[in-house]
Amino acid sequence: MKRNPIGVLLALIAALALLASACGSDDGADSADEVDSGDTAESTSAESSASAGPLRVGIVAPSASNDLAFTQSIVDAVNAVAGDRELDIAVTDGTFIVEDAAAAIRGYAADGVDLVIAHGSQYGGPLQEIAPDFPDTAFAWGTAVDTFGLPNVAAYTVRADQGGYVNGTLAAQLSESGVLGVVGPIEVGDAKLYVDGFVAGAKAQDPNVTVNVNYIESFSDVALASEAATAHIQNGADVLTGTAQMVVGATGVAGPAGALWFGTQSNQTPLGPDFVVASQVYHWEVVLSEMMAEIDAGTFGGEVYTLTLENGGLVIEFNDGAGADSSVIDGAQATIDGIIDGSITTSDG
C-alpha cells in the first residue's frame, strides 16, 4: 500500500500543534504540579493525613495563572489557604473560551474534586447545567452573586469599588495635570465596580479632576490596552489605572511616559516598581476559608460571599518605590477607615 506523504505530514503537524497548544494552556495535572511546587507542596505533603485526606480543589480560570491580575488572585488565594490546611490543588488556566472552561469544570467534577472553582462570571451558564449532575461536588463561581438556587453552588464577589475609591482619591492627589485615565475591559462585573469606585473617589477628592474612562471591549487585547493608555497620556493624563489581564499593555506605556499607575486584583508592583503606586489586592482566601469550612460541615453551597475592606478580603498594598508623597499615602488609611466604618460611601454597590 502506498503511503500518502501529505497525509502523514498533516497528521504530524496536527499532532505537533495539539501538543504545543496543550502544553501551553496547562492542563490540570501539569498546572497542579507547578502550583504545588513551592511552599504549598511542602505543607500539603508534610501534613498529609491518613483520615480524611486533603480537600481536592480544582480552579478553572480565563487567563494565565501568573497574569498579575484576575486569575493570579484566585491561584494565590488558594495557595494561601493551603498554608493553613491540607489541599490538593489543580489549575486549568487560559480558558478564555467558555466551552473549554465547561469541559474542565465537568472534568474536575467527574474526577471527584471536592471543590471546583469556576473563576469567571462568564462561566455561569455551563455551571448551571453541570452542577446538578454532581450533587456531591461543591462549586464556587465568581465574580457573581447568583447561586441559581442550587444547593451545591456558592457565589463569590468583591466590592472592588471600595479599593477603586481609595485609589481614586490617591490618584486625584498625585495628579499634577488634573487628568486621570482609566483602561477598562468590558463594562461588567468587578471591572465596572472598580472603575465606578475610582471615578467616585477621584471626584470626591477633587471635583475638578477629569477622569477619562476607556472600556476597550476586550479582556485580552494587550495592544489595544497599550494604545488606549497612549491616548490617555496624549490627552493629558499623568495618572492611570485599569483592570483585567490586558492592563499589562497599558502599564508598558505608562512607565516610560512618566505616568503613575494604580493596580487592582493583584499586586502589580512587578509591572513597574518605580511607577505603580498602590494596588487593590483580592485576598479570596478570606471567603475560600469560610467556604471550605462550610464544605467540611456538609454544606456545599447556597451562600454568596463578598470580599470587602471590612472583612480583610480587600487590601490596599502600597509601593514605596514609586516615590509618591508619603503624606498622601498616609492619608489613604483615613479613607480606608472611613469606608470600613461606613462614613464614606463608595458607590451604590
Binding site: A14, A17, S21, C23, T251, P270, G272
Partner: peptide, 25 residues
Amino acid sequence: GIFLFGLGATDLLFQKQVGVPLPIS
C-alpha cells in the same frame, strides 16, 4: 498548523521561561 504551533509554543515558553509579564525597555 503553523498558527496553532506559534500560539502553543509561545504560551508554553512564556510560562516556563518568563512567568510573570515583566516590562522591557
